[in-house]
C-alpha cells in the first residue's frame, strides 16, 4: 500500500468521474469547462503515479499534458465560440479547486523528490498547469461574452 497511489486512486474517483459526467451532458459551455478540469485532474494523477511507482521519468507525461491540455481547451474555445453559451456557475470554484489541488500535489512531490532538477521539472509542470487552467477557463467564459471571434 502506497500513499501516493492511494491519493491517485482517490483523485481518479473524485475527479475524473465527475469530469466524465460533466462532459457527457448539459449545455456546451458546461461540457467544455468540465473538459478543462479533466486536464488538471489527469495531470495531477500522472504526477502522483510518478511518485507512487518511484519512476521520475513518468513526470514527462504530466509535462506534455500540462503543455498541450490547455491548448486543446483553447482550440474548443476558439472554434466553438459561437455556440459555447454561458459558462457554468461552478466555473470559478472549480478552477480555484484545481489550482489549489495543483499547488498541494506539486509541493508534496517537490518535497518528496528533494532539491534538484527533478523538483524543478515538477514545479514547472505545476506552473504550466495552473496558468493553463486559469487562462483556458477565463477564455471559455470570455468567448461567450464577446460572441464569436474568428
Amino acid at each position: 500500500m502506497n500513499a501516493w497511489l492511494a491519493c491517485a486512486a482517490l483523485l481518479l474517483v473524485a475527479g475524473l468521474l465527475p469530469v466524465v459526467w460533466g462532459t457527457a451532458r448539459g449545455p456546451l459551455g458546461h461540457r467544455a469547462m468540465a473538459q478543462n478540469c479533466g486536464t488538471s485532474v489527469v495531470c495531477l494523477v500522472m504526477l502522483l503515479l510518478a511518485q507512487g511507482y518511484g519512476r521520475p521519468a513518468y513526470t514527462d507525461l504530466a509535462l506534455v499534458l500540462a503543455v498541450l491540455g490547455p491548448v486543446g481547451t483553447l482550440v474548443f474555445a476558439r472554434l466553438l465560440a459561437d455556440e459555447l453559451g454561458e459558462a457554468p456557475r461552478w466555473a470559478r470554484p472549480a478552477t480555484a479547486l484545481a489550482v489549489g489541488a495543483t499547488a498541494l500535489v506539486v509541493i508534496a512531490s517537490c518535497v518528496a523528490t528533494g532539491p534538484g532538477r527533478a523538483a524543478v521539472k515538477v514545479a514547472l509542470v505545476g506552473v504550466l498547469l495552473a496558468a493553463g487552467n486559469v487562462i483556458a477557463s477565463r477564455d471559455l467564459s470570455a468567448a461567450h461574452r464577446d460572441g464569436g471571434h474568428g
Binding site: V20, Q35, D60, E83
Partner: peptide, 25 residues
C-alpha cells in the same frame, strides 16, 4: 460531432491513465 470531440478528448485522458497504470508510459 462537436460534443463528441469534447468527450473524445476526455476519453484520451482516461486512456492515458489506463496505459500508465498498466506500465506503458
Amino acid at each position: 460531432p462537436a460534443r463528441q470531440a469534447l468527450v473524445l478528448s476526455v476519453l484520451g485522458l482516461a486512456l492515458a491513465v489506463l496505459f500508465t497504470v498498466l506500465q506503458a508510459p
